[in-house]
Design a protein around this nucleic acid. Structure first.
Lengths: 221, 221
DNA sequence: AGCGATGGATAGTGCCACTATCCGAAAATA
DNA sequence: TATTTTCGGATAGTGGCACTATCCATCGCT
C-alpha cells in the first residue's frame, strides 16, 4: 500500500503521515525504487495507535515516541513495559520549592504505608505531590495525604487490579500485549474520567436537586 | 497590596499576573490613583485558584475563564455550577463521521440504561463516544459499550457519591462551595489518576513479577 | 508520451501561554 | 528635595508544538 492509501484507510492526512515518518513515529516504508515506498498492515496499525494516543489520551508527540520505543524494546518484560508506557504518559518534573519537597516527602511516606511495590522514581508520585502542595497553599496549612488520597486508595487498587487482570496472562505473545497496554492505559483513563464526571452530575442532581438547564448554555461555536 | 507583592506571595511572575489581568481572569485592582492599583485577598485567592486549575488540572486559559464566569454567576445553583465547571473542564466536540455517530448513539443508549440524571449535551458523553470509536477502529468490529465501560460504572458512581457527599450540604454559603467545586473537580481527577497509575504498577509487579529497573531509565534531561 | 501521484526536503502556519520592552507617573529612599 | 525604584497599562515579541504547504525530480500507470 502506498502513502495515499495509508492515509485514506486511516483518515490521517498525507502530510501528517509524512510528518510522523520524519519524526520517526512511523518506520519508513519498504523502498521499491529510489523514490517509491510500500507500507503494510503494521504501518496502518501503528498509525492508528498513534492517533489513539494523541486523540484519546492527549499524549504529546514526544511522549508517543517514548511509548513506541518501549513497545519496540523486546528486552522489556511486561511489567517494565507497563512502567515505561506510564512514565511516558505522565509528564512530571520535581520542583525546587522547599514546601513542595515537604509535600513530596509526605506523599512518599503515605505510599510507603500502603506497601505498594512502586518505583521510587515513578512520576505519579510527583503528581500527587503537586496536588498536595496545591491544596496546602489554598487551605490554611494542615492537609494530610491520608485525608486527600485515602478515599481513593481502595478504589484505585480495585480498578487497577481489574485492569491488570484483564490483560493477557504472563507468557502470552508480547506483540499483542504491548499495544493492549498502551491503548489500555490511555483509553481507560479517558473512559473512567468521563464516567466519573457523569456520575458526579447524577449524584449532584440527587443531592442538590437538578435545575438542569438542559442545553440552555451558549452552544459555544 | 500592589502587584509585586501579589506576585511574590503567589509565586506567579508579575508579567503573568498582568497577562491574567488583561485576559480578564483577574479583576482589575482598585485604583488609588490614575496609575496605581491595590489588590486584596480576593485577588490572591483567585490567582491561586487559576494556578491550581492550570498546573494541576491542565486547564487551558480559555476554559479557566469559563470556570471563573460560572463561579461568579450567583444565579447558578450548586448543581448547575458543578455542571458548568465540568463542561468547561472537559473539552469535546462531536464529529461528523457516521461511524462516530453510531458510537455516540450506543453510548447514549448505554447511559440511558444506567438511569443517571445527566444532561443530553454533557461533553463527557462525547468523550465516551471518542473512546468507543477509537477502540472499534482498532479491534475488528464489535466492542459493546457495556464491555468497555461496564467495569467502571460501579466504581465511578461510588467515587462520585463520596465526592459529592464530602461537599458542603445544600444551603451552605455559596462562596465557599464554588471554589471547592472547581478545585475539587480538577485536583481529584489528577489525584485519582496518579493513584491508579501507582496501583497498576503494584498490581503488575505482583502479576508479572517486578524486574523493576528502579531508576535504570535515562534520567531524561 | 502524457499526467497525476510519490518520496523527500525545506519552509511556513496557527495557536497558545506567556515574556519583554517601553512609557509616563507615583512611591520609596536618601 | 532629589533621586532611584516600582507601578499600571499598552504593544510587541518569544518559544514550543503539531501540523501544513510548497517544491521538485522521479515513478508508475494508461
Amino acid at each position: 500500500m502506498r502513502i495515499s492509501e495509508l492515509s485514506r484507510t486511516s483518515g490521517v492526512p498525507v502530510p501528517t503521515v509524512k510528518f510522523y515518518l520524519r519524526e520517526g513515529l512511523l518506520p519508513p516504508g519498504e523502498l521499491t525504487s529510489p523514490n517509491q515506498a510500500a507500507y503494510g498492515e503494521a504501518h496502518l496499525r501503528r498509525l492508528r495507535l498513534i492517533r489513539a494516543l494523541v486523540e484519546i489520551g492527549g499524549v504529546s508527540i514526544a511522549a508517543v515516541k517514548d511509548v513506541l520505543a518501549a513497545l519496540d524494546d523486546t528486552s522489556l518484560g511486561v511489567h517494565d513495559l507497563l512502567g515505561s508506557v506510564q512514565y511516558a504518559l505522565i509528564p512530571a518534573q520535581p520542583r525546587d520549592d522547599p514546601e513542595w519537597r515537604e509535600a513530596f516527602a509526605d506523599v512518599n511516606a503515605f505510599l510507603d504505608g500502603l506497601g505498594w511495590r512502586v518505583r521510587s522514581d515513578a512520576p505519579a508520585r510527583i503528581r500527587l505531590a503537586d496536588v498536595l502542595h496545591a491544596l496546602r497553599r489554598r487551605d490554611g496549612e494542615p492537609v494530610a495525604p491520608d485525608a486527600v488520597f485515602g478515599p481513593y486508595v481502595q478504589v484505585a487498587a480495585q480498578i487497577a487490579d481489574a485492569e491488570i487482570a484483564s490483560m493477557a496472562p504472563p507468557g502470552s505473545p508480547r506483540e499483542a500485549l504491548a499495544e493492549q497496554v498502551a491503548v489500555g492505559v490511555a483509553t481507560s483513563e479517558a473512559a473512567f474520567s468521563a464516567l466519573r464526571a457523569l456520575a458526579q452530575e447524577d449524584a449532584s442532581a440527587r443531592r442538590y436537586g437538578g435545575s438542569t438547564l438542559e442545553s440552555a448554555r451558549p452552544a459555544d461555536q
